[in-house]
Simulated assay, not measured.
Amino acid sequence: MTYVITQPCVDIKDGACVDVCPVDCIEGEAEDRQLFIDPARCVDCDLCATVCPVDAIYREEELPPEWEHFTDVNAAYFTGGKDEAS
């Protein structure tokens, strides 16, 4: 499993999660509307979720139904799709 960044991050991008990630799996360019977690590098440590000030980060299996598509959004970012959610 992995963690997934969801809707509350869009246009916020606080970055606290980036600072605590021990494997540097959270990325996002200045022009991106949100940050993204690379599912291949995420080690499920939970640090990102504990520091997120807008509660945008969930375990993949605990995603609210309306945000399940963010699993694909995060993965696509790292496979060249850079598919941003709205």
Rank of each mutant, 00 (worst) to 15 (best):
M1C: 13
M1R: 13
T2H: 08
T2L: 01
Y3E: 11
V4L: 01
V4M: 02
T6F: 03
Q7P: 02
P8M: 02
C9N: 09
C9H: 06
C9S: 06
V10L: 14
V10W: 12
D11I: 07
D11A: 09
I12M: 13
D14L: 01
A16G: 14
C17A: 07
V18A: 09
V18T: 15
V18K: 15
V18L: 12
D19F: 11
V20K: 08
V20F: 07
C21S: 04
V23F: 05
V23E: 07
D24I: 05
D24K: 13
I26R: 05
E27L: 08
E27N: 11
G28Q: 04
G28F: 00
G28E: 02
E29Y: 13
E29H: 12
E29V: 09
A30I: 13
A30S: 12
E31L: 09
D32W: 03
D32P: 03
R33D: 13
Q34T: 14
Q34V: 09
Q34G: 07
L35E: 02
L35A: 04
F36T: 00
F36L: 05
I37Y: 00
I37M: 01
D38R: 05
D38E: 07
R41G: 08
R41D: 15
C42T: 06
V43A: 08
V43R: 13
D44Q: 13
C45W: 01
T50I: 10
T50Q: 15
T50G: 10
V51C: 08
V51T: 11
C52Q: 01
P53G: 09
P53W: 04
V54K: 11
D55V: 10
A56C: 03
A56Y: 00
I57P: 10
I57L: 04
Y58I: 06
R59E: 15
R59Y: 09
E60R: 14
E61K: 13
E61S: 12
L63Y: 04
P64F: 03
P64I: 04
W67C: 00
W67G: 00
E68Q: 14
H69W: 09
D72M: 03
D72T: 10
D72F: 00
D72N: 08
A75R: 15
A75H: 06
A76E: 14
A76V: 04
A76R: 13
Y77W: 12
F78K: 01
F78L: 03
T79C: 05
T79V: 10
T79L: 12
E84S: 07
E84L: 01
E84Q: 13
E84R: 03
A85R: 00
A85V: 01
S86T: 12
S86V: 12
S86F: 11
